[in-house]
């Protein structure tokens, strides 16, 4: 490399970009826009892996529902649709707040953006709180997943007579459990993003992290949009 006189990484065609080099721009990207688009495509690809992860559970649900429709109808009676509906509304609202936070950062209103992110985390916590109450009311009556399924108590006793009822609750707990895990991860990520936004790391020029956290959060919401009617209502 002795003859190497020009170490400039960018080709001649992008000299315009060259003068302006914001600190968030990593050296292997030519422009901020390319970096943002790349990150976003990567996130969408990650989201479809998430969708396919959940698809396995949806397949299990579809197969067992098709085999044992009466069991699913009977067992889903024991789930409280009020909790389900409230949780749906909570998650939808949190999706709105996260979308608003992106709207505000695009207009450089950092404070409003942070408030909306924090509201999202708060709503997610409400969701998990309601989920906790629901789980506890099931565990109290011995409604555990799979092999530990031992229903007792006024509203649950009849389940012991329903064949394959334990399958329904296995699927219920696995689906909502893995969804809940995603909610917890989302809370962590959004809180972390909110912290950096508060410290002024983001602006309308550069808000990739908020955008990606928002995409992830919407996906968590979408999964719940499907889980809610499938498990609680029909």
């Amino acid at each position: 490399m002795a003859t190497d006189t020009d170490p400039a990484p960018a080709p001649a065609t992008t000299d315009v970009e060259h003068d302006y080099h914001p600190e968030h721009l990593q050296h292997h990207f030519v422009s901020s826009e390319q970096q943002f688009d790349s990150a976003k495509l990567g996130m969408w690809l990650f989201l479809i892996t998430e969708v396919l992860l959940f698809s396995g559970m949806f397949v299990a649900y579809a197969v067992y529902r098709q085999w044992h429709p009466e069991t699913f109808a009977a067992a889903s009676q024991t789930l409280d649709p009020v909790f389900g509906t409230v949780n749906t509304l909570v998650l939808l609202t949190s999706s709105l707040t996260v979308a608003l936070s992106i709207h505000y950062i695009q207009h450089d209103e950092v404070k409003k953006c942070v408030y909306n992110l924090l509201a999202t985390v708060g709503l997610a916590a409400v969701f998990m709180g309601i989920k906790y109450v629901e789980y506890m009311s099931k565990f109290e009556h011995g409604v555990f997943p799979g092999g530990f399924f031992d229903p007792h108590g006024a509203h649950y006793e009849f389940l012991a007579q329903v064949p394959y009822a334990s399958q329904f609750f296995s699927i219920y707990f696995v689906m909502t459990g893995i969804h809940g895990l995603h909610v917890l991860i989302g809370m962590g990520v959004i809180a972390w993003v909110a912290y950096y936004a508060w410290k002024g790391a983001f602006s309308s020029e550069y808000y990739t992290h908020i955008e990606l956290a928002g995409l992830y959060w919407h996906l968590v919401d979408i999964v719940w949009i499907f889980l809610f009617p499938m498990l609680y209502l029909i």
Binding site: T49, L52, L53, G56, P145, G146, Q167, I171
Partner: peptide
């Protein structure tokens, strides 16, 4: 494709620990 083997592993682990009865004929 890979996420599907991921969820399969998760279900298999749960099958072993919690006996959720998705794959094992002895559990339905």
């Amino acid at each position: 494709a890979t996420p599907v083997i991921g969820i399969t592993m998760v279900l298999l682990i749960l099958e072993q620990t919690l006996q959720i009865g998705i794959f094992d004929p002895a559990l339905g």
